[in-house]
Every structure is written in C-alpha cells, then in structure tokens.
C-alpha cells in the first residue's frame, strides 16, 4: 500500500516502510534541510514540523500515521505565513527567521529548525505573546549553545513586525 504525504503544499509518494519515522523520509527522500536529527526521542525539538499548523516531532511520528495532515517544514514557513496573512507575495524569509538574523541570535544554528517552527506555531495563534507565554510554549526546544535569551528577543521582534504588517 503506497503512502502519500503532503509536504509544503505538494504531494509526495513515499517509498520507505510504513514504520519509518517521518523525519527520515523528509531528510532522505524529500532531501529537506529543515527537519534534522537531534535525539530521535521526542526530547529536543530538532526534527519539528507543523502538521495542520500543529508542531509535531517527526522523529517519533511514523510516516504511515501522517495521513491527510498537511506537513509544513522550515522551508515551507514563508509560504504558509503568506497564506495565513493573505499576502500577495511570499516573503524570502519568515519574519521569525529575519528576526533571528536581525538579533544575531544563533550560535551553531542547528536547533533553529525547531525553534523557528515552534515559534511560528505560537505566533500564528497568539500574535502578542507575553514573555511567560513564550517561555512556556518554547520549553520543549533545547538550545545547547545557550542562545535562549536572543531567541526570546527575536520572537518578540518578529511578533512586533508581524503585527505591523497587519
């Protein structure tokens, strides 16, 4: 039984066995750079993607369980954002990614797939998050390099930019 998944607005036939975690399909069949391995245990957030707008851990989601849910990866965030905001053109970067650059937030940057996806989930639903809301929402995402303070600042910067954009 052939599996198809919908990723970043496109349908993809999957050749992996049904018990394969979605992460390996995204990395090795779709050759995406966003979702990436960190722990394989749903403990770090490195592999995060959105499924119908809800953040999930692709390392612990077997591909046969994805079903009809629309998967959005880091690569698809600008387009999803444009759609959510009704923008005519897709921006080069999601406002969060832009804010991470503007705030010079990252160190190695490896954890930023998960940080970006998780924060995008937050801002889509809560355009004016308080600091406490950001802390609680982001808590499942580890940054071993310790760049949390600037991730926090970047999310606030992005929230302000998004609100301004209307």
């Amino acid at each position: 039984m052939a599996i198809n998944i919908k990723v970043n607005g496109r349908d993809w036939p999957v050749s992996a066995d049904p018990d394969t975690p979605l992460l390996y399909v995204l990395m090795n069949e779709l050759e995406l750079k966003g979702p990436r391995f960190g722990c394989g245990l749903a403990q770090c957030g490195s592999c995060s993607v959105l499924a119908d707008g809800v953040e999930i851990r692709s390392c612990q989601t077997v591909v046969s369980d994805v079903g009809a849910r629309a998967i959005t990866t880091l690569e698809g965030l600008p387009e999803l954002y444009a759609k959510q905001k009704g923008l005519a053109t897709v921006p080069a970067m999601h406002p969060l990614s832009q804010a991470f650059v503007d705030e010079q937030a990252m160190h190695c940057g490896y954890c930023y797939n998960g940080q970006t996806v998780k924060a995008a989930e937050l801002l889509a639903k809560t355009p004016h998050p308080t600091e406490a809301q950001i802390r609680a929402h982001m808590d499942g995402h580890i940054c071993r390099c310790g760049s949390y303070p600037r991730i926090m600042k970047s999310i606030q910067t992005a929230a302000a930019a998004i609100v301004k954009e209307g």
Partner: peptide
C-alpha cells in the same frame, strides 16, 4: 546567519 536562519545552511549532518 542568513543561510542558517533560512534553513539553507549545510551542516555536516545534512550531507548525503
């Protein structure tokens, strides 16, 4: 940083 933020940077783990 721009490449890293956009998810376009090639970390070691990305190479195939």
């Amino acid at each position: 940083m721009p490449e890293k933020a956009a998810g376009k940077y090639t970390h070691m783990q990305h190479l195939r």
